[in-house]
C-alpha cells in the first residue's frame, strides 16, 4: 500500500516567488523600472527639457483625439507623410525592379551600375535629405525624391540577388518538360523572386521612411517629420517625446500588421519558418548573411 502525500497548496508567498522568476515578470518589471526612473530622475537632471512620462502621455492622448496646437493633427501629419512615402517608393520600385533584373541578367549591366548601387546603399539618407532640400526647396518634391533615392538601391540590390538566386535545377526541369517561356516565368521565376520582392518592399520602405522623416525635418513645411521639428522649435519637449513614441508605434504597427502578415502569406510554403517575433534577431540574421543590403539606423 502506498500513501499518496497530497501536496500542500502553495502559499501566496511561494506563488509570488515563482512568478517573480518568470521572464514575463522581468518584462513587466523592466518597463516599471524604466518609467519610475524616468519619473523620478528627470527632475534631477540639469535640464528642464525632459518631460515626465505622464505629461508625454497626456500629450499623446490629446494628439490621438486630434487636439493639437500644431498646424496639422496627428492623422493629417502622418497622412501627408504616408502619401509621400507611397509615391516615392512606387517610383523607386518602378525604376529599381527593371534595373535590378537587368543587372542580374547581364554582367555588363551589372558592372555599369554596381559601384553606384554600393555607394547608394552606404549613403546616409541624411545626405539625400539635405541635397534635395537645396535642390528642390521646401515642398513635396524634396521628401518624395529623398524617399526615391533612399529606397532605390535597396530595391535594386534585392532584385539583383533574386535573379542570381533563381534555381537552375528548376529552370532546367521546366525546360526538360518543354514548358513554355510564359509559364516558366510565372511559376518558376516569379515563385523564386517572391521573397526578394518582399525584401525589396521591406528594406526599401524602411530606408525610405527614415529618409522621408529627415527630409521633412529639413526641407518641408508639413508631415510627421516636420511636426516633430515644430515641437522642438517650440521647446515643447513632451511634443518631441510624444512624436518620437508615435514613430516607434508606427514602425511596430507596420511590422506587426503589414509585414508579418504579408510574410506569412508569401512564405506559406516554407514550413521551417517559425514566425520570427523579434525583428532584432531577423535583422542580425540578415546582416550576418549579407552585408550592406539592409538599411542602417541612420535616422
Amino acid at each position: 500500500m502506498t500513501t499518496v502525500a497530497t501536496p500542500l497548496p502553495p502559499s501566496p508567498w511561494q506563488k509570488a516567488r515563482t512568478f517573480a522568476a518568470t521572464p514575463r515578470f522581468a518584462r513587466i518589471l523592466s518597463i516599471m523600472v524604466f518609467l519610475l526612473a524616468w519619473q523620478f530622475l528627470a527632475p534631477l537632471l540639469p535640464t528642464d527639457l525632459i518631460p515626465a512620462p505622464l505629461r508625454v502621455l497626456q500629450f499623446m492622448w490629446d494628439e490621438v483625439r486630434a487636439i493639437t496646437l500644431a498646424r496639422a493633427n496627428l492623422y493629417e501629419a502622418f497622412g501627408i507623410s504616408l502619401r509621400r512615402l507611397a509615391i516615392g517608393f512606387a517610383l523607386a520600385f518602378g525604376v529599381g525592379v527593371p534595373v535590378g533584373l537587368l543587372m542580374g541578367v547581364s554582367r555588363s549591366i551589372e558592372n555599369f551600375f554596381q559601384d553606384f548601387v554600393v555607394v547608394g546603399l552606404a549613403m546616409p539618407s541624411l545626405v539625400w535629405a539635405l541635397l534635395t532640400g537645396i535642390w528642390f526647396g521646401m515642398g513635396d518634391t524634396s521628401p518624395v525624391v529623398t524617399v526615391f533615392l533612399a529606397a532605390l538601391p535597396f530595391v535594386i540590390i534585392n532584385m539583383f540577388e533574386g535573379v542570381r538566386d533563381v534555381p537552375k535545377d528548376l529552370t532546367d526541369m521546366a525546360a526538360a518538360f518543354r514548358i513554355g517561356r510564359g509559364r516558366t516565368i510565372r511559376h518558376v521565376i516569379m515563385g523564386s523572386l517572391m521573397p526578394f520582392f518582399f525584401a525589396s518592399l521591406r528594406y526599401g520602405l524602411a530606408n525610405g521612411w527614415k529618409g522621408l522623416v529627415l527630409a521633412e525635418v529639413f526641407a518641408s513645411t508639413s508631415g510627421a517629420g516636420w511636426t516633430i521639428q515644430y515641437w522642438r522649435d517650440a521647446h515643447r519637449a513632451q511634443g518631441v517625446f510624444g512624436y518620437a513614441l508615435f514613430f516607434v508605434l508606427f514602425a511596430l504597427l507596420l511590422e506587426r500588421l503589414v509585414f508579418q502578415r504579408l510574410s506569412r502569406r508569401v512564405f506559406r510554403w516554407r514550413p521551417e519558418i517559425v514566425s520570427v517575433n523579434s525583428t532584432a534577431a531577423q535583422a542580425v540574421a540578415d546582416e550576418t548573411m549579407r552585408d550592406g543590403d539592409r538599411p542602417d539606423e541612420d535616422g
Binding site: P23, A26, S30, G225, I228, F247, V248, T279
Partner: peptide
C-alpha cells in the same frame, strides 16, 4: 529572466529611427 528584462528595449531601440534619438 534577463532576456525578458531587456528584450523589449533592444527591439525598440533597434526599430526606432535614429532621428528620434538624435533630436532628443
Amino acid at each position: 529572466w534577463w532576456d525578458g528584462f531587456f528584450r523589449d528595449w533592444v527591439v525598440t531601440t533597434m526599430s526606432t529611427p535614429g532621428l528620434v534619438f538624435a533630436l532628443i
